[in-house]
Amino acid sequence: MRLSTIGYYFREAFSSLVRNSWLSLASVGTVTVSLLILGFSLLLVLNADRMAATLESSVEISAFLHSGVKQAQITSLEQEIKALPGVTEVRYVSKEQALTEMRQSFGQRKDILDGLDKDNPLPDAFRIKTQQAGQVPGVAAKIQTFSGVDEVRYGRGVVEKLLAVTHWIRVAGMAIMIALAAAAVFLISTTIRMSVFARRREISIMKFLGATNWFVRFPFLLEGMVLGLAGSLLAGLAVYFGYFSLARHVNETLPFIPLVTGMQYLLIMLGGLIALGLLIGALGSAISIRRFLNV
């Protein structure tokens, strides 16, 4: 393909965009909104999945001990718990250790915990892990009966609830995205139909001058793809900056929520949004080219 021909395609495509500027704007807007929703629901799902995984791997039983339990009793309790079927790991956490761990998870806000060193309210505890999450309730019930154990806790139902939520986010996000993408395809095809109509005289002249079918079609395909690309770039920018300012906020105020900020995920996602925008544009113009461009 010659350079002058490529130049011709772009000139034609852009002059059409300017001619139908209102409709072009509407198409771009629809692509933007649909991809924006897709982008944010993907991020939501990604984060919820991450959170669910974190929680699932940390479904452990905490057995808090009465204060004043002797070291010898602690050792024998540890043996007893280890002997229970399904238990894979038992870790003793003294009250001092517990306070240090808590400080770490609070990060920059650890100053809240200042002053607790002298009068540490946290109890000594065992952290117990099981082979499977399903064994947790049984093991927990048994540990409760041991003497010296004050209270037994585990994250009952949290994981299940979170997974159900991510499922619904996924379904709803997909449904809205598909509906809006369909609207975007329709709007783009209308835009292209208008520009085919505006240029029908030129098209008929091109045909008797011996232009190949693809030469006639290509500017229209390009026009649709430019619309899709513009929409997806806007959506991508909004997702990128929106999400990062959100992540920074969350990091400052709620440091224990582990948001995904890895660039590798985000770049893949932004690339995907742009590819999808191009696809929507190409599909919209292909429909109109097939139906209205009789070449």
Binding site: S4, T5, I205, F208, L209
Partner: peptide
């Protein structure tokens, strides 16, 4: 069958343009 928005020479050049002439 000329294109009214194109100049005379552009109308003539169009026949070459659509066939990919440099």
């Amino acid at each position: 069958r000329l294109l009214p928005q194109k100049k005379v020479w552009e109308n003539v050049a169009f026949a070459l343009e659509v066939t990919g002439v440099s």
